[in-house]
């Protein structure tokens, strides 16, 4: 197919995906703002004032990048997982499968939709955080690059989860039992340098540590890990997950009999 046809198809999928989460904004955009406000009130105002400084910054400033990143991760993943599985469940994924849409366009469309929601929620959470703390920006490009790559990574993860899922339960298992523990143990609320040496080593196996730290570097200029390693980890994840998603869709796993 010509590139212009593919561009129109990609725009249509993106339009459909963005329209979907905007139509149900009370379910998709409001809850993260409320959740993050509670985090700020409890961990920032009430408990944070007793914790003191972390990494040379007051606790509230320290946790803001991690909380924004947590929202981006959760929303990117759940957007694609629920949208793609819902399309499978209602069989309207067949609208795309019978059309001359290349598989990479389907992947890009859904991942783009997940990124759009993740980044929009990230912006909303950032705006909410301005009510609680003055945000400083150390390097805007690191912030943009990290948030884009992270949302792409977890959108791809959500897509693969949805491809394998055969019930709505299957798209909540990974967020509940894998994603949430990894996020909470990913240095959102603490610097991993505070951990005993053994647990520091264990934490380095958690990919979310690299994403949170790279993002925190963009705001505060501090990080527990090397930025080069952080972006390399993101790059490897994106290439691996994209390749897996393409193989699965091309084979028709969960889509074609």
């Amino acid at each position: 197919m010509s590139s212009s046809v593919n561009v129109i198809a990609l725009k249509s999928i993106l339009h459909k995906e963005i329209h979907r989460f905007m139509r149900i904004w009370i379910q998709t955009l409001v809850p993260p703002a409320i959740t993050i406000s509670l985090y700020f009130v409890i961990f920032g105002e009430l408990i944070g004032s007793r914790i003191g400084e972390m990494g040379g910054f007051d606790y509230m400033s320290f946790i803001v990048p991690g909380l924004i990143m947590m929202s981006v991760i959760t929303n990117s993943y759940s957007n694609v997982a629920s949208s793609f599985y819902s399309a499978k469940w209602q069989h309207n994924i067949e609208e795309m499968l019978v059309a001359p849409v290349p598989n990479w366009v389907i992947v890009a469309g859904y991942v783009g939709g997940g990124m759009a929601r993740g980044i929009l929620v990230g912006l909303i959470v950032t705006l909410v955080s301005l009510f609680f703390v003055d945000i400083q920006i150390h390097n805007i490009w690191v912030i943009i690059l990290t948030v884009c790559l992270t949302s792409a990574t977890f959108s791809l993860g959500g897509l693969i989860n949805a491809i394998f899922a055969s019930s709505f339960d299957d798209i909540s298992i990974i967020p509940t039992f894998i994603l949430t523990p990894l996020t909470y143990l990913g240095g959102v609320f603490y610097s991993i340098s505070l951990l005993p040496e053994f647990w520091q080593g264990v934490s380095q196996a958690n990919p979310i540590v690299y994403m949170v730290n790279a993002f925190r570097y963009g705001f505060l200029g501090i990080t527990d890990v090397s930025l080069t390693i952080a972006f390399s980890v993101l790059g490897v994840f994106i290439v691996t997950l994209y390749t897996l998603a393409m193989v699965l869709i091309t084979k028709g796993v969960g889509l074609r009999t």
């Binding site: 129109i8 249509s12 999928i13 609208e95």
Partner: peptide, 11 residues
């Protein structure tokens, strides 16, 4: 929306 999106998938 259904019709317009479907047309879009065909370019």
């Amino acid at each position: 929306t259904i019709l317009v999106n479907q047309a879009g998938y065909y370019g």
